[in-house]
Design a protein around this nucleic acid. Structure first.
Lengths: 342, 342
DNA sequence: AAAAGTAAAGTAATCGATAAAGTAAAGAAT
DNA sequence: ATTCTTTACTTTATCGATTACTTTACTTTT
């Protein structure tokens, strides 16, 4: 009942050729005459041959597979990137092995070990929130497996990185706000030991400094990248009766938390409290008011990462690590468009 | 510079044992004495041995890998399911190969072929919007590879299916609305050749029929599962000056489209036009008003699918196909809570 | 004490492909 | 006519593991 799958050997026996001839023919090797190639291909087709990828990879010492490690999937930013990575891979005949660390360093490490064991040709990583130990990445390097860090980047020398220009993006948002007249600006920030948390804060600070606006420490609230941070943050400032005019949040989920708290507190956005965030997602269009943001081009992040990785894979040796910064764009929707106070 | 990875053979040479002894010891085979096993394991650890998964799978004729085919990733429903699948797999020591059809039947087929070529132990599929030809699934069956269809299910006999009870869920939503006093109810539906489109429509119809409310054909609008459908749908009804009191949408993105059109048309939700949808997503909490919906427990969909698949994989032969219906839950937030007209 | 059983290894074959090296026949060069 | 090339395959080795079967040296049974 269960049908064994057809192997090169099966085709070879049927046609009275050697296995190698079949293998070569199917790969268009010049050793084999055009007629024979054609014959073999048609028979292979007819018999429903599909190569055994395990076997192929084992003997070819190359898997045409790329490992990807991300902290989360059910988050628009990552799912959009992943979708783009899959697209790119599909068009370049690569397979993707996707793994998810769930923001857990231990899991991240195990996934990378598995990817090495699977002999992937290269790895793209976006490190987890809690990754502090970078030893595993050294292991990857020693094994000679090309590695690209995307968006979430560890502090190591000589690595490939592709990231959004977080600092500049944050700067643009705050500068825009300042020019509209905002002075009381809060920043619901990420933790500063992770690059995107740190850089976005610096961008915020750059702008405030440049326009000589003092930063109130109570208005710089560090936290995680999720909704709770925004919700708790606004609730706390409200309790202290210490509301800013504008909140710049480190990610869009944090801004969603702010929207929620604002509704509960009966604060109207953008009149009572205004918001702008880093990171774009479709849903922002459907909020009221639609949420303005600093857009990170996810498709560019994906395609640049893949491009560098493939170049690294295909360059025999001595590939110089590349560091790409992708520019951001300010997208103005319903928030942070004009200064309403006074 | 590039370090070769350690193989069984390397360990064997170092300890003067045969490769097989090493292999057995590492798998706790009773052939090998406890002391030897202990020694071998410690040396393997020390040398940094990681098995070559390709080689292992090839000789063991088992990959401990499950293939997954979904139509989309950047959609909360699917990304939530995928995350759960990864969790489940991680806890059961399986690897996942995820592929994305992008709602394209041709791509879906190629992905399934690849998964077969990779010798996955089983496959979970959520078919694309446009899949009409089910031949490839017959191929999978002939190969004896266990297959579970999840959520999006083709019309084939004798298959494993895991799906939300769409009909009942839709019924519950509409019945709730009717009991509140709604009579003018529209349905922005999916296409009826795909099960979720069809079943949700039937649930809608069941409720309307049961309470003897005539269905206005202009108010049943079939379309795709995305935002545009909702946006265009509401715009069109408004143009015709033929607005219902409540719109029940086939997915939540369709509801988002409705929100957007409503804002543009200056229609207040829920007073001027009310909405309820099938499918839950975090963002619904952040809309104003928060969007009520029929919740599909994504983690259950994922875990049930995995459970059935693993059972099927581990049952020697003669596994009876199973069909699981997962109950839905009505989640009431800011919409569809009371009837405002008259 | 001979036959049988068992513990702890080893040997050989295999999984399905690819790479490297070898070969026979035909055509080209000298 | 002899040597060199080229064409079109075939043979052999290999990738790194696993499975199935043997072997060796004891121990146990009768």
């Amino acid at each position: 009942m269960t049908e064994k799958s057809v192997t090169l050997n099966d085709i070879a026996k049927r046609l009275n050729y050697s296995t190698v001839t079949i293998s070569k023919a199917l790969r268009n090797h010049p050793d084999i005459s055009p007629q024979t190639t054609k014959l073999i291909k048609s028979v292979a087709e007819e018999m429903g041959y599909t190569p055994n990828i395990m076997a192929r990879n084992l003997s070819a010492r190359r898997s045409n597979t790329i490992g990807v490690v991300v902290p989360k999937i059910a988050h628009f930013f990552f799912s959009a990137i992943i979708e783009s990575i899959y697209d790119y891979a599909f068009n370049h005949n690569y397979e993707i092995i996707l793994t998810v660390s769930q923001e857990n360093a231990e899991r991240e490490k195990r996934h990378i070990q598995t990817l090495l064991a699977m002999k992937v040709d290269g790895i793209i990583v976006s490190i987890s929130q809690e990754t502090k130990n970078y030893e595993i990445f050294e292991t990857v390097r020693r094994r000679g497996v090309p590695l690209v860090f995307m968006d979430r980047i560890p502090a190591i020398e000589n690595i490939n990185t592709v990231q959004v220009n977080d600092r500049e993006g944050a700067f643009k948002a705050i500068e825009h706000a300042i020019k509209l007249g905002y002075r009381n600006i809060a920043h619901f920030a990420g933790y500063s030991d992770i690059n995107i948390g740190r850089e976005r804060y610096y961008g915020f600070k750059d702008a405030m400094d440049q326009y000589n606006i003092p930063i109130k420490p109570e208005w710089v609230v560090a936290g995680e990248f999720g909704e709770n941070h925004g919700y708790d943050g606004l609730m706390e400032l409200h309790r202290q009766n210490n509301l800013p005019d504008l909140i710049f949040t480190v990610t869009y989920p944090v801004a969603l938390g702010v929207y929620m708290a604002a509704r509960e507190l009966n604060l109207k956005i953008p009149d009572d409290i205004d918001v702008i965030c880093f990171g774009n997602a479709k849903v922002q269009n459907f909020l009221s008011p639609p949420l303005s943001c600093v857009d990170q081009p996810t498709n560019l992040l994906a395609s640049e990462s893949m491009e560098i990785l493939l170049e690294n894979i295909n360059s025999a040796d001595g590939f110089e690590p590349r560091n790409i910064q992708i520019p951001t764009e300010l997208i103005l929707r319903g928030t942070c468009r004009k200064f309403n106070k006074e």
